[in-house]
Design a protein around this nucleic acid. Structure first.
Lengths: 206, 206
DNA sequence: AAGAGACCGTCTCCTTCGGACGGTTTCCAC
DNA sequence: GTGGAAACCGTCCGAAGGAGACGGTCTCTT
């Protein structure tokens, strides 16, 4: 049993990013991809730029893209999408794939263990998160302020989820901060002026 | 210039997960870690179980954990935290590290390129996302329904962010679905009964 | 005492990640 | 025009992460 179709090699999120970006713009060099990505989805989902150089040749080998060469001095690789590539992209868009993804926020991990630190630590964390998410929100808002024709409707919608997400984070951490300051958190001590907290160490099940 | 302290080798999120879990429970075997993780942070942030077997020995080598052996038949490795480990954990909790993380939701990536598919595709996507996030929300709600003393306050708080996140997603996709069905999306066609959509292909800048 | 099923652990392969490094082109001062 | 600074562009590598196949061990039941 051999794979009858090299084009059906497993496609990852990066693959679809590349396919989508090339389809949207007609053609692109890896560098273009890097720039396009940064201006669109890269806002929520960053890709190592090395991937954007490696992926197009892979897709070309699978027949989903074709590669040309610039004639000018730099002789950059220019990629265009093929019918097979369009089909793969359309299949992905049409598939009922509903993977969820995860809430991999470093701040959340830290919060999950905040009971092991002092109350002041949690306060610091919350403050930092509020600030960081506010700044990210500002970035998104600047992007969202672009004229309507600066991006396709779908991307704008995606941006709106990003805005909602940042606002959710800000609200969450701000509320936590309030509760912490007001001593309204059951189990967490009231924050006075202390800086270092205890880390639990009682022996347990082995 | 050499690293004077082997214990200061770079610690990753997995490191802190392990450190935190061991600190919280007093001691743990790698298998315990796997179970503990699944019952707590694993809800939002999953770790490959192989990591939970590899990380403790690494931390032990760095002096942050100590390893014992069960005497019984299976002779499992039991890990406990050291003072250095507690210090590292406390330092992490107290540090103003505020990395943001990203919104790496596969559905979001797909949405960003939805203009390249047909209106029916976006509808399918939205429907699927609503269903998937509703199911995830139900899982979180069941977890949140546990008695107050079933988890530390910090973990419960983290859970609450998870709940908010799922509700945000549900609202977002449900609203998109509504707008799509009502033809209220500028640029997206009204969904009639079509199934396959076009993928843009006009040549552009090279 | 035997076998089923849960429990527990390791290994390997492949991808991703981050970033160091290096070369090229353009532009501007002079 | 020429030198070089600055932006532009591309490749490579080592370390870490992730999926999951595979294998061994214990417990419980009959």
């Amino acid at each position: 049993m051999e794979d009858p179709s090299p084009a059906s090699a497993s496609l990852t999120p990066v693959s679809y990013l590349v396919l989508g970006l090339v389809a949207r713009h007609g053609s692109a060099t890896p560098y273009d991809l890097k720039v396009f990505a940064a201006q669109s989805v890269g806002n929520f989902w960053s890709f190592a730029h090395a991937q954007l150089y490696k992926e197009p040749p892979r897709l070309a080998e699978a027949g989903l893209l074709v590669e040309e060469r610039e004639e000018s001095g730099r002789r950059r690789r220019i990629f265009r999408i093929t019918d097979a590539g369009r089909a793969a992209l359309r299949a992905w868009l049409a598939s009922g794939e509903t993977a969820l993804g995860e809430l991999r926020a470093p701040g959340l991990l830290k919060l999950a263990f905040a009971e092991l630190g002092g109350p002041a630590d949690a306060v610091e964390l919350a403050r930092g998160q509020v600030a960081a998410h506010r700044s990210q929100l500002a970035t998104y808002e600047a992007f969202a302020a672009l004229p309507a024709d600066a991006m396709p409707w779908s991307l704008r919608r995606a941006l709106e989820l990003g805005l909602g997400y940042e606002r959710l984070q800000i609200d969450f951490w701000a509320r936590l901060l309030d509760d912490l300051m007001a001593g309204r958190v059951e189990g967490a001590g009231r924050v006075e002026g202390e800086a270092a907290g205890p880390v639990a160490a009682e022996p347990g099940a082995g």
